[in-house]
Design a protein around this nucleic acid. Structure first.
Lengths: 193, 193
DNA sequence: ACCTGAACACCGTTCAAGT
DNA sequence: ACCTGAACACCGTTCAAGT
């Protein structure tokens, strides 16, 4: 086990059956506090707030990313992921769209959150100690601009944009995109919460 | 190493420096063939086809899921993920939306694909040998219907829908949702490719 | 009731020795 | 040039023995 805080290696096995169960407990705890933020406003704003809370929790605890996927598939009735689904789904149902679209719309939001947050967490881990974020973005953008114009016209065209984008902001704009798709119209309210 | 096909354990290290490099090579190969499918039609239809190709590749090779996230963050200029970005991005730019939205729109699509496909891969792995899919869905839906009505009204309301949904179909509807959000209108064409 | 610590299984990696 | 196989490091887990 990675953490042996002033105990023998076998000590934890008195309290917990195995590493998976320990991660489950940690996951439940982290996600619970991440979703405990009181949110009020339009459904859209509330969804953005919940999404951002999860995004940041996963950024702080990168091991959450595979963990959430596993828990969702292994026991979709156990506490953690159902709460996420429920929390977002309640706001989706408050958007005033037909009930037949709720399940798919909520799934899309949750999958997007997990995907984007997982990617962000991987980025943060790679950066973490050593590389600077701005430096990294600059290097990436430069590399994209050097690519073959015939094969990679798109990457070249967005290199400038990538150079100084903000991950949180881009994440939330992605949420807005999906919300627009769900309601089939403008998500309403300002662009930023 | 997991696969010791009729060789000594140290044999691979002559050809490849470590396990990561081996996975990188496998990733490149799998993704290349997954995206080699010739697609023609509206940008929307092409995006759906590419997305589904990746979805199915990740379903067949669940180890791709963490692998793609890592590769994207560790070396965003190396071959695999840039190709995915480029391929989808070209179609996004063909949608006729302002260039300033391309980067975020493409990121949203890619993150959604990775998130949904990763979840699906985890599901498939858990099922794989043993549990039947229909049986699993039924059990999940039943469990959701048993939940406390005060705390989980949403999960109870979608339990029926969840019981007999198709993962591929739901995935593609999610793509359509994002495409609608990107164009700010109907994605056009039929619902299914 | 809870912790210790030696021991085991498993797996990624190294490397001197073989062909 | 390429493979073998003993050896090592690392980590999750077990368990008899301690307090």
């Amino acid at each position: 086990m990675t953490e042996r805080l002033a105990t023998g290696p076998g000590a934890i096995y008195w309290h917990v059956p195995n590493k998976g169960a320990l991660l489950d407990a940690a996951t439940a705890s982290v996600v619970a506090t991440a979703m405990a933020v009181e949110v009020t406003g339009s459904p859209q704003r509330e969804i953005r707030a919940i999404a951002l809370g999860l995004f940041e929790a996963i950024e702080r605890h990168p091991w959450l990313s595979p963990q959430l996927a596993l828990r969702l598939s292994r026991s979709p009735w156990s506490s953690v992921t159902p709460r996420i689904f429920e929390s977002i789904g309640q706001r989706v149902s408050a958007l005033g769209v037909p009930e037949s679209t709720w399940f798919t719309a909520t799934s899309a939001l949750v999958h997007y959150i997990f995907g984007a947050a997982g990617q962000n967490a991987a980025n943060s881990q790679v950066l973490g100690l050593g590389v600077d974020r701005a430096e990294f973005l600059r290097a990436t953008a430069n590399a994209w601009e050097e690519l073959d114009p015939g094969e990679f016209p798109f990457l070249r065209s967005i290199a400038d944009e990538a150079r100084d984008h903000d991950d949180r902001e881009q994440f939330l704009t992605g949420i807005d995109l999906i919300l627009t798709g769900i309601t089939g119209a403008e998500p309403g309210g300002s662009t930023r919460p």
